[in-house]
Design a protein around this nucleic acid. Structure first.
Length: 650
DNA sequence: ACGGTTGAGACA
DNA sequence: TTGTCTCAA
């Protein structure tokens, strides 16, 4: 349910930028010969020509609509060019669109606080830029106005017959008798026109924009004149706009709440809400939603533009409709593996490009039960701490699925005999990585991070984590989660590791850095360590690694030394073991791991990235370690560092 | 249960 | 915090 936010007496300038039929534009940029031709993007060409997910404006003229099948589109527009969404691992791959969206964001974010609202939409807070322009180069002082700005639509501006629209717009933009807020909007119009021109020049995409005092109105405005146009909403036109705006057109009211307003209160237009007191609306829809409704009826919306250029989660999913439903565990496993592979790749990219790590893995599934009466029950979603590494994510996802399936099937533990089908079917699967946070990189932020992590490392939290990990991700049914095991986990031996780098020879460090990455396995309790557990594109640091998957500490030490690192430990290897449950046969190394060294931002590449740990506490400690390493090396401007870490909290 | 895939946010 | 639900494009 929508929630009202305290509203600053809106002197803000907020823009909503909406890319025009974005996927089509991305494909047309890839294949410029398609420019100007009727084009649509389809996915899954196999059935009836695939489903349209984006339709270019040339094709819309022929009546081609989103969610037509490809064949239908050919029917109404035989000359249409249908471009398929890229496919990877048997599913749609939207990465090229995500990347194109990032290009646009990086252009727009130069001008003010920028929020990436979706793959093709952005909110901008241009208040500061507009205030600055108003103070320095107010539109009324300009004799020449950008032509793109002159093509703007000004909501509520009288359009007299025979009058030149651009002259009208110019007059509005340059009015000297306008109030402060309208003058700010006029500045916003000029700024957005310029930004749109930059997007077109630098990324070759057209977009439409809405400019107003809040997100809600800007969002409405950006959709009013498409493609490649912009619309401004002055205060004076708000009432008229909302008066005749169908309630369902308002963001957040397109669903059940909007329907309820229509059926319960007879509200068909946003303006109809004005009849109801705030109290009345609160009685119907609760405090928050009631106030929110009261506000939007008046064009008031306090939502801030969040300064966020990157997504808060990554997901990979696929549906298996009707006859394609998955009915066996191996088929589920196959598709989960594909989804997890894609997710893992995107997580790795996020780590490399943005220094962010995700901490939670969630699995969603849609299922039906063919025979049982309670076949309407929903498949429960399940989550667990996220461990980096493709095979780990795959394992964890599969375990989450099986936990969900057991719960879904409930007491009906139908033993599936041989090839007999089991009575359930999976029609949708998705894996999501969330709780993404930056790896800290400044001294103060590191201290903050440290304090934050310290709590996470409390013994009770450790035990809780471990407990949850073992319950939600238990690896086999007959391994008990006994109290004894739990206690053992709490008595994890203390570990300290020190890495020294005595080299002051920049030349050799550069050489090291040029190797792109260095993996230092600390310890492995597993005999079959697959390379796939690690980052895939990095070279093996040790020759013969495959044949020595579990190097002894002494070997490790000598190898590391050869990389001008030394590895020290206060304890023999046997005591460094972090005990887990007695699953020696599965690929679950307790504490093993490796550091990647990459840091394009420093002249000497010196970032050490720790990842892929068995529980968040250890991972957190190592992330802290990473931060310290970076700071020390950056601050000292040299390569000699000494770092120590305490892996197990007090 | 051919609008699929992806994402955000509120709430209990 | 986790899991569910809603909404959007």
């Amino acid at each position: 349910m929508p929630v009202a936010k305290p509203v600053s007496s809106d002197g803000r300038v907020i823009a909503h930028i909406d890319m025009d039929c974005f996927y089509v534009q991305v494909e047309q940029r890839k294949q410029p010969e398609l420019r100007g031709l009727p084009t649509a993007v389809v996915q899954y060409n196999s059935w009836k020509g695939g489903a349209l997910i984006a339709v270019g404006y040339e094709a819309r003229k022929f009546g081609v609509k989103r969610s037509m099948r490809g064949d239908e589109a050919k029917g109404v527009c035989p000359q249409i060019h249908l471009v398929q969404v890229p496919v990877a691992r048997g599913k749609a791959d939207l990465n090229s669109y995500r990347e194109a969206g990032s290009e646009v964001v990086s252009i727009l974010a130069r001008m003010g606080r920028c929020e990436r609202a979706s793959i093709d939409e952005v909110y901008l807070d241009l208040t500061d830029a507009a205030e600055t322009m108003l103070a320095e180069t107010s539109p009324e002082s300009l004799e020449v106005i950008d032509d793109e700005a002159l093509k703007s639509h000004i909501l509520g501006l009288k359009h007299e017959d025979g009058s030149d629209m651009k002259e009208n717009v110019k007059a509005w933009l340059c009015r000297s008798d306008a109030d402060h807020r309208d003058k700010l909007l006029a500045c916003g119009v000029l700024i957005v026109a310029d930004l749109r021109r930059q997007v077109l020049q630098e990324a070759q995409f057209t977009c439409s924009a809405g400019i107003s005092h809040n997100k809600m109105l800007s969002k409405l405005a950006s959709a009013m004149n498409k493609p490649a146009q912009q619309t401004v909403v002055p205060c004076s036109s708000v009432q008229g706009l909302l008066e005749s705006l169908p309630i369902k057109k308002m963001k957040q009211l397109g669903g059940k709440l909007g329907s309820s307003l229509q059926s319960e209160l007879g509200v068909n237009f946003v303006g109809d809400l004005l009849q109801f007191s705030e109290q009345k609306l609160q009685e119907y829809y609760g405090i928050n939603t009631g106030t929110w409704l009261w506000n939007i009826a008046r064009g008031i919306s306090g939502e801030e533009v969040e300064g966020r250029l990157l997504p808060k989660s990554h997901g990979s999913g696929k549906t298996f409709p009707g006859p394609r439903a998955l009915k066996t565990l191996p088929s589920v496993q196959h598709w989960l593996n594909e989804l997890c592979e894609e997710l893992s790749e995107r997580l790795q990219t996020d780590l490399d490009q943005n220094r962010r790590i995700a901490r939670t893995l969630t699995l969603h599934a849609r299922a039906y039960m063919s025979s049982e009466s309670d076949s309407h029950k929903k498949f429960p979603s399940k989550s667990c701490p996220l461990r980096y590494g493709t095979t780990k994510i795959q394992e964890d996802a599969m375990n989450l699925f099986q936990a969900g399936l057991r719960e879904y099937l409930g007491p009906f533990k139908v033993k599936t005999q041989g090839n007999q089908k089991s009575g359930w079917g999976i029609t949708g699967l998705s894996v999501i990585a969330s709780k993404i946070s930056d790896i800290p990189s400044g001294t103060s932020s590191i201290m903050k991070y440290f304090q934050g992590q310290d709590q996470l490392c409390s013994p009770s939290k450790l035990a809780k984590d471990q407990f949850e990990l073992e319950n939600s991700c238990s690896f086999s049914e007959n391994e008990s989660n006994s109290t004894l095991n739990l206690v053992e986990h709490m008595k994890l031996p203390e570990e300290e590791a020190t890495i020294k780098n005595e080299s002051s020879d920049l030349e050799s460090m550069e050489h090291q850095a040029s190797r792109n990455s260095l993996e230092v396995p600390f310890y492995s309790s597993v005999s079959s360590l697959k390379r796939a557990d690690f980052s895939q594109e990095t070279p093996l640091p040790f020759s013969g690694r495959e044949s020595h998957p579990e190097p002894k500490l002494t070997e490790l030490q000598s190898e590391v030394s050869s990389e001008e690192f030394t590895f020290e430990s206060g304890r023999p290897a046997s005591e460094q073991r972090v005990k887990r449950n007695s699953l020696r046969d599965k690929g679950t190394p307790s504490l093993l791991k490796f550091f990647r060294r990459v840091d394009p931002s420093c002249s000497v590449q010196n970032q050490v990235v720790a990842q892929s740990f068995d529980n968040t506490n250890i991972r957190s400690s190592l992330v802290l370690f990473v931060g310290i390493a970076r700071v020390k090396m950056c601050r000292e401007g040299r390569c000699g560092i000494t770092m120590s870490m305490r892996l197990i909290p007090r």
